[in-house]
């Protein structure tokens, strides 16, 4: 699974993207966030306030309860400020 980070979330976790192999207990975006946060304090810090985090699964906006698969591309980013 490819995970992408953008804007201040990228800065907090210190990388743009990573490849992980999904374990079976991770079924939803929420599970993934919990797993990512458990790895290191910098990840926990980036995901400490989920009201400020948005997610896209395979380049489509998704909710945190969205079910995910091993070949999905998951992107985490703050609310958008385009235009």
């Amino acid at each position: 699974m490819k995970i992408l980070y953008f804007a201040w979330i990228r800065e907090k976790v210190g990388c743009e993207s990573e490849e992980i192999s999904l374990s079976e207990e991770i079924e939803t975006v929420n599970d993934l966030i919990e797993w990512i946060s458990s790895r290191e304090p910098k990840y926990a810090n980036a995901f400490s306030d989920l009201r400020a985090v948005r997610v896209a699964v395979n380049m489509e906006f998704a909710q945190f309860d969205k079910r995910i698969k091993n070949n999905d591309e998951i992107a985490f980013f703050p609310p958008i400020t385009g235009g």
């Binding site: 804007a7 385009g82 235009g83």
Partner: peptide, 14 residues
């Protein structure tokens, strides 16, 4: 279109 871009196009301003 411009209203949509503001909140739906994945851009972030620094």
């Amino acid at each position: 279109l411009i209203d949509w871009l503001k909140t739906e196009a994945p851009f972030w301003k620094l």
